[in-house]
């Protein structure tokens, strides 16, 4: 199986085919979905999409790191990271679809 990379365009095409909106409007709606999810995460909200997965924000404390090349100690500032936990449905479909 050769691996393909899908983009916003492919999602817009799927919306166009499913709902019959123009390709332009479909693309705007796909963008809008991503924008609303991003905005919620930036506000500090987690985003839970049933049967898809949960995006959650985690705060990482400051710590000392090391420049692997020079061995020098460098402070790593506190930061927020996003983690994604796939739903059971997604895990099952990915596991079955890629079997063998």
């Amino acid at each position: 199986m050769s691996e393909k990379t899908l983009t916003r365009m492919d999602l817009a095409e799927a919306v166009h085919e499913e709902v019959g909106l123009s390709r332009n409007e479909s693309a705007d709606l796909v963008e809008s979905v991503l924008q609303h999810m991003s905005d919620a995460l930036v506000r500090g909200e987690n985003v839970k999409i049933s049967s898809f997965g949960t995006f959650s924000i985690r705060d990482k404390a400051a710590r000392m790191g090391r420049n692997p090349k020079t061995g020098e100690e460098v402070p790593i500032s506190p930061r927020r990271v996003l983690s994604f936990r796939p739903s059971h449905l997604m895990k099952d479909r990915v596991a079955h679809g890629n079997k063998g």
Partner: peptide, 17 residues
């Protein structure tokens, strides 16, 4: 459709960027 398409792509072994 947006979320379904992402799952379908991954079930086919594809990436969605």
């Amino acid at each position: 459709t947006v979320f379904e398409s992402i799952i379908d792509a991954m079930a086919d072994g594809n990436r969605v960027e």
